[in-house]
Amino acid sequence: MDFRNFIAAKDDSGRRLDKVVSRIFEAQGISRGIFPLIRKGLIKVNGKKSSGEYRVSEGDSILVAEFLFENSEESSKIESKEFPFCLEEITVFRNQHLLIVNKPSGINVQPAKDCDFCLCDLIEDDFRKNGSKSISFRPGPLHRIDRYTSGLVAFSQSLEGAKWFTENIATHAIGKEYLGIAQGEYKKEEELYEDFIYVPENSENSYGTVIVGKESGKKAVTKAQFLKKIEIQRNLCNLVSFTIETGRKHQIRAQSASHGHPLLGDVAYGGKQLKNKMFFLHAYKLKFPQNPVGLPEEITAKCPFLQ
């Protein structure tokens, strides 16, 4: 019997055999039960029968019976897409562990019902075309920003990079700063918002609004620093720097509005309606502690509404 050979890379190490093979099948458009194939010896490791629970090691030879690939349709869902821009145009930082992009406003980070394109599509396509050696690893977003928020978003390029970033964003060791255009009058140059944010049960998608001030919610801390007056589309508003200590859904939008400063254009939170759907919020800066994944102390992205 002929077998197709897949060599496990570093980012496959430690994963269960059934999970690794499921990635192989997914890429080839194969829909089959994996455990029966392993039990029958149609999937082997290093030439020997194994079990689905086996933990793969770097360098393992995973053999899959060739006939299982007959009549399979290798997934071309992403390859057939035409992207509105290329990855290089929005890349701010990249190494073997992490990719950081400057997301345009109006683009989703992840798939959504009402959009045909998201950043995940573009980055998965690039990862596959550039010859990833891993069988099972796929790049993914390590945090998210709203569809109409522009700015910095980090994606994993290795298991090591994903683990480090995830751990440090959870402990707030990674600093995040935003620039926004807010309405209302600031009585002082700096304001500190400490509130509770509650996400209603019926708010299942990213467009559902949150409630500020409900003690059953989660604590949210945002520092707003007034920078200067600015005119946008004939509206005299304020350029504001936001630093967040927590990462709640719609945190800046909801808290700023709750304290009398809705973002211009953010009608969901009381902002003045503009001709387009956008509001003015940009993920401007990421600050990093010392790290083993090659990140500098900070990374910034050009702000589209200040150019």
Results as ranks from 00 to 15, higher is better:
297 E>T: 14
183 Q>N: 11
47 G>V: 07
130 N>T: 09
105 S>Y: 04
255 Q>M: 13
227 L>K: 15
89 E>D: 06
74 E>C: 01
2 D>F: 03
111 P>V: 02
296 P>A: 13
107 I>T: 05
117 F>Y: 03
72 S>I: 00
81 K>T: 06
257 A>Y: 04
28 Q>V: 00
175 G>Y: 00
292 P>S: 06
199 V>H: 11
187 K>I: 10
28 Q>N: 14
301 A>N: 13
68 L>N: 00
122 L>G: 05
162 A>H: 02
239 L>S: 12
182 A>V: 11
31 S>K: 05
260 G>P: 05
60 D>M: 09
72 S>N: 01
290 Q>P: 06
150 S>P: 07
125 D>R: 07
167 E>R: 07
237 C>G: 12
174 I>K: 07
24 I>M: 02
158 S>A: 05
138 R>V: 10
258 S>D: 12
249 K>T: 10
191 E>P: 00
199 V>D: 02
77 K>Q: 12
250 H>F: 05
136 S>T: 11
209 T>V: 15
18 D>F: 06
89 E>C: 01
38 I>C: 05
148 Y>R: 09
135 I>R: 13
88 E>K: 13
110 Q>A: 12
168 N>H: 15
55 R>C: 13
54 Y>N: 13
146 D>C: 09
307 Q>A: 13
72 S>G: 02
139 P>T: 05
173 A>P: 00
69 F>Q: 01
255 Q>G: 12
50 S>L: 14
137 F>P: 05
282 H>P: 10
207 Y>S: 13
269 Y>S: 08
147 R>C: 07
221 V>E: 10
208 G>Y: 11
226 F>N: 08
273 Q>F: 03
50 S>E: 15
143 H>V: 02
118 C>T: 03
201 E>C: 02
64 V>G: 01
291 N>H: 07
